[in-house]
């Protein structure tokens, strides 16, 4: 079989991606994913607002002024306080970034922080049945009559990326809606901008785990096993990163540094930092995701579909 031309290969990939999106809409998968992210995001924002309300009302009580039902009035005061800076250091783990991070609305910062925790597992879980189900039912062979395996794999990955992007965009808007209804927003447009900017970073952060999910889906026929593998793999990435960091402190830096460098967890700081650092993460994290999908492809390519 001859290799398709570059343009033809791209065209096929985009067609498969489009079909993946259409199929996700038709099978209600898209709705489920969007709702999953929206509920997680809206719920965490609501939790944040309640914490902020408690902090602000405690502050109001100590200042001898009346409390409010909606927080937000004292947010600017809190931004200048050392206590909040210590909390932020706990969240982002880097003193040098605190001033840059606190320029963003607090609700957007918290949105990104919760995304750092939630998105990897959700993205890996959602992407884990991208291919395995069709391999199990052998439905994939009908698609393979019209295009190559590589185009199929990357087309579906691209479709899942678009679904993740849409879900995170809507999750950002859900967070904004919750914040809008439950707290005082001094500059709503800036808050919305902050939430959408953080949603973009959350999308970049989710890509490697999405790639891992697709790779697991390529590697096994059972969607259930693919999901289990994806969740274990995601957890393993973080545990592995922790072990590598520990090994580096034990004098194995020369050997483990390349692995630490490629580990997605090493790029969290770049995502917080903004500017060129985030742009570099925007180049690297999709590339890493594509490599993971490629590793899964090596298994799929040898399988009798």
């Amino acid at each position: 079989m001859t290799e398709p031309s570059l343009l033809l290969s791209f065209r096929d990939t985009f067609l498969v991606a489009r079909f993946e999106l259409v199929r996700a809409r038709r099978t209600w998968q898209a709705m489920a994913v969007i709702l999953l992210f929206a509920i997680a995001s809206g719920g965490s924002t609501y939790g944040f607002v309640q914490i902020l309300l408690e902090i602000e009302n405690n502050l109001a009580a100590s200042l001898g002024v009346p409390p409010t039902d909606a927080p937000g009035a004292l947010t600017d005061v809190l931004l200048g306080s050392d206590d909040l800076r210590r909390v932020m250091r706990g969240l982002i783990n880097d003193w040098s970034l605190i001033d840059d991070v606190l320029k963003w609305p607090l609700v957007a910062v918290f949105h990104f922080w919760t995304s750092l925790i939630l998105v990897p597992w959700l993205a890996a879980f959602v992407a884990a049945d991208t291919i395995s189900e069709d391999v199990r039912t052998r439905a994939v062979r009908f698609e393979l009559l019209r295009t190559g395996r590589l185009e199929l794999v990357y087309g579906r990955f691209l479709g899942q990326c678009l679904l993740l992007a849409i879900s995170l965009f809507l999750a950002g808007l859900t967070s904004f809606a919750v914040a809008w209804w439950t707290m005082i927003l001094n500059d709503p447009l800036y808050v919305m901008y902050g939430l959408l900017a953080m949603s973009l970073r959350a999308f970049l952060w989710g890509l490697p785990f999405l790639g891992l999910g697709v790779a697991c889906s390529e590697s096994v026929k059972s969607p259930t096993w693919a999901r289990i593998l994806a969740l274990i793999g995601t957890t393993g990435m973080f545990i592995g990163h922790g072990i590598l960091i520990w090994l580096r402190t034990k004098g194995y830096g020369l050997y483990v540094s390349p692995l630490i460098g490629v580990s997605p967890a090493s790029w969290i700081r770049s995502l917080w930092a903004g500017g060129l650092d985030t742009a570099l993460a925007g180049l690297y994290l999709p590339a890493f995701a594509m490599v993971l999908v490629g590793l899964g492809y090596l298994v799929l390519a040898r399988r009798d579909a």
């Binding site: 783990n93 003193w95 957890t235 990163h241 969290i268």
Partner: peptide, 23 residues
């Protein structure tokens, strides 16, 4: 960019809050 935030960047007393850091 490629520095790990748990290692060189964090002050010695800085607690690690993420999963990798805990491990």
């Amino acid at each position: 960019t490629v520095k790990s935030h748990e290692g060189d960047q964090a002050p010695p007393d800085c607690p690690r809050n993420d999963f990798s850091g805990v491990v």
